[in-house]
């Protein structure tokens, strides 16, 4: 009885720790976004729609991050992390379009070709996806080792 109560108490402790951790990470992420947004203010002035799309992206990204943190220590954490990496790649590919950003001012048209930037960002996202997949494999490997009794701490 006492051990069961202890286990339950540990579970609650563990869950509350996960919640706190997820909240802190989300807040830090949002603060980082605000800092980067302040740095990128000149870009947002030139391309107003960019701020809105980035905000929507950040919301989804943080939600996936929170879910990943809440399911920490389970296989679902890796599902959410892979989903987050895939979402980032999808967002970059969708927002890339033709790879150029155009804006008009009076009689002038300004076109900035961001293909190189997008390509680099997609490569980094793929690297992130590879890392999460490797983490998932490592997790499953450790689980298998524990189950078979070969786990060496």
């Amino acid at each position: 009885m006492v051990e069961e109560k202890k286990k339950q108490s540990n579970k609650v402790k563990d869950l509350s720790f996960k919640v706190v951790r997820a909240s802190v990470t989300a807040i830090l992420m949002y603060v980082l976004y605000l800092l980067v947004a302040a740095l990128l203010a000149p870009v947002f002035e030139l391309v107003p729609w960019l701020a809105e799309t980035i905000e929507a992206f950040i919301v989804v990204y943080i939600v996936l991050m929170i879910l990943g943190d809440l399911t920490r220590g389970t296989i679902f954490q890796h599902f959410f992390n892979v989903a987050r990496a895939l979402f980032l790649i999808a967002y970059l590919l969708v927002s890339m379009g033709e790879g150029a950003v155009s804006m008009s001012y009076e009689n002038f048209n300004l076109t900035i070709n961001l293909t190189m930037f997008y390509a680099f960002a997609v490569v980094l996202s793929l690297l992130g996806l590879a890392t999460t997949v490797m983490k998932a494999i490592s997790y499953l490997n450790e689980r298998a080792e524990v189950a078979s009794g070969f786990h060496q701490p």
Binding site: F108, N109, L110, T111, I112, N113, L114, M116, F117
Partner: peptide, 8 residues
């Protein structure tokens, strides 16, 4: 890295 074009 960023090619920019202004036209009028």
């Amino acid at each position: 890295l960023l090619p920019v074009e202004i036209s009028t």
